[in-house]
């Protein structure tokens, strides 16, 4: 780097390089999937956040650190709805500084950072393209700001940080929340999900019904007869004896149309609705039985840990 920048562009260049140097020790390469490269952000001394879609192994995860060292990590918790996974390692890491999102806006200069499988840090820069209000991901996750960066987010940058011009974290970049573009999970949302994952004994307790389902198209006549806007529902293929659904009176062949306020078109919708339903609470389940709508009250159980 030039010791004395001779123009404002050189000064900007020096600032950008400094921002990368600031964040670099807190960006790791995460090897938890045979085909998907990902980066991770050091969240505190022993925790790393990364993208859930790049996790295949929950144990024996290898991290490549900024200083060239490697560390073993395991999954503390996962939240597919926001594509976030929290990892734990016994190695002592350097946590990343956080940006104040209140001062971030459209047009601000940002950098996306990642670490490659050869442990080299990599960066691209651009501007904040969108910075809007709360939104819900396609898997039902609640995100407090819609943050979209306009810069190159290479595949291995998924799980890596989006930082401001001084190298402080604005959020985590991911290709897992949209099929069309890379988005950034804001730091404030990461904070909330991490607290949930840690508070729930290392995971977000997910509701459980004890059924197996598959999507089924609803015949036009049925949709018209009951004024249904959805094109499909989830037909119950199996009911675990003595499970929550069984206790609530659910039967083989029932077609689930809604769980609480959430319309159900396939089994993923059920999983997402359950992710947001605390065990022990009672949910109303709208079903079709013998072609007629019916309402069941089911006390949601907690997913047994071996049923992942």
């Amino acid at each position: 780097m030039n010791a004395s920048p001779s123009n404002s562009l050189a000064a900007l260049s020096a600032d950008l390089a400094r921002a990368v140097a600031t964040i670099a020790p807190s960006v790791v390469y995460v090897d938890a999937h045979p085909r998907r490269d990902a980066s991770g952000i050091v969240w505190d001394e022993h925790h790393v956040v990364t993208v859930d879609h790049a996790i295949e192994r929950e144990d024996d995860i290898e991290l490549l650190l900024g200083n060239g060292a490697t560390a073993r990590a395991s999954v503390v918790g996962r939240d597919p709805s926001t594509d976030l996974a929290l990892l734990y390692t016994t190695a002592t890491l350097q946590a990343a500084p956080r940006a104040d999102l209140a001062t971030l806006g459209v047009g601000h200069l940002i950098l996306a950072i990642g670490r490659d499988e050869d442990a080299a840090v990599a960066a691209s820069f651009g501007i904040v393209s969108s910075f809007d209000g709360p939104w819900r991901t396609w898997r039902g996750g609640q995100v407090d700001r819609f943050l979209r960066p306009d810069c190159n987010v290479y595949p291995s940058f998924s799980g890596g940080p989006l930082v401001d011009a001084t190298g402080r974290i604005a959020g985590m970049n991911t290709w897992g929340l949209s099929r069309r573009m890379a988005l950034t999970l804001p730091a404030t949302t990461i904070e909330r999900v991490v607290a949930q994952l840690q508070g729930g004994g290392g995971r977000i307790a997910r509701g459980y019904l004890g059924i197996a389902m598959q999507a089924i198209l609803l015949p036009e006549a049925l949709r018209a007869a009951h004024a249904l806007t959805q094109r499909s529902g989830a037909i119950v293929m199996d009911v675990a004896a003595g499970g929550p659904a069984d206790a609530g009176g659910m039967q083989l062949g029932d077609v689930i149309l809604a769980l609480g306020a959430q319309a159900i078109e396939d089994s993923h919708d059920v999983a997402n609705a359950l992710a947001a339903t605390p065990p022990g609470s009672t949910a109303s389940v709208r079903i079709l039985r013998g072609g007629r709508p019916q309402e069941l009250r089911v006390t949601v159980g907690e997913r047994p840990s071996d049923d992942d």
């Binding site: 780097m1 900007l12 670099a24 950098l111 960066a123």
Partner: peptide, 8 residues
């Protein structure tokens, strides 16, 4: 060889 990551 004197370049550092993040330079413009």
């Amino acid at each position: 060889a004197t370049l550092v990551p993040g330079e413009l």
